[in-house]
Simulated assay, not measured.
Amino acid sequence: MPSTDRHPREEAEMQNYAVLGGGTMGCGVAQCLAEAGHTATVFEPAATARAAGPERVRAGVRLARMLRRTGHDPDEVLGRIRWVDRLDQLGSPEFVIECVPERLPLKEHALREADGHSAPGAVLASCTSAIPIDHLAGWVSDPGRMIGTHFMNPAPLKDTVEVACGPRTSADTLHRTTRLLASLGKESILVGDGPGFVSNRVLMLTVNEAAAVLAQGTADAATVDAVFQKCFGHPMGPLRTADLIGLDTIVDTLAVLRRFTGDPRFEPSPLLADLVAAGRLGEKTGHGFHRSARGR
Rank of each mutant, 00 (worst) to 15 (best):
A222S: 05
L136M: 15
G233C: 07
N153A: 07
T128V: 11
P167K: 02
G166V: 10
D193S: 07
F232Y: 14
P238K: 00
T128W: 14
H175P: 05
P235L: 09
L180D: 00
G144R: 02
L203E: 01
R179T: 12
L157Y: 13
H135S: 07
N200I: 00
A125G: 15
N153W: 05
A210H: 01
D220L: 03
K186F: 12
C231P: 07
L205A: 14
M236D: 08
L157K: 05
E187P: 13
V224P: 00
A226H: 11
S118N: 03
T178E: 12
C127I: 08
H135I: 14
D225K: 01
S183E: 01
G196T: 00
E162F: 15
M236R: 04
D172S: 03
M236G: 05
L184G: 10
N208C: 09
A211E: 00
F232S: 08
R145Q: 06
A221V: 06
L124E: 03
F151Y: 15
D220F: 04
A226D: 12
N200G: 00
V202D: 01
W139V: 02
A221H: 11
L157R: 04
I133K: 07
L214N: 07
G192F: 08
D225Y: 05
Q229V: 11
A171Y: 07
A226C: 05
D193E: 10
A221K: 07
V163A: 03
I133E: 15
T149K: 09
P156Q: 06
R168Q: 11
V198H: 10
A226W: 06
T173N: 04
C231K: 05
H175T: 07
T149R: 10
P238T: 00
M236Y: 07
F232Q: 06
L180K: 05
S170T: 14
N200Y: 01
T173F: 10
V191H: 08
G121N: 04
L214A: 06
L157D: 02
V227K: 02
T173D: 05
T173V: 02
L203P: 01
Q216P: 01
A221F: 13
G121R: 06
G185E: 03
P120K: 15
I133W: 13
A182Y: 04
E209Q: 12
A119H: 05
A164M: 13
A125H: 14
T160K: 13
A164I: 15
A219H: 12
E209K: 10
G233W: 12
A222F: 06
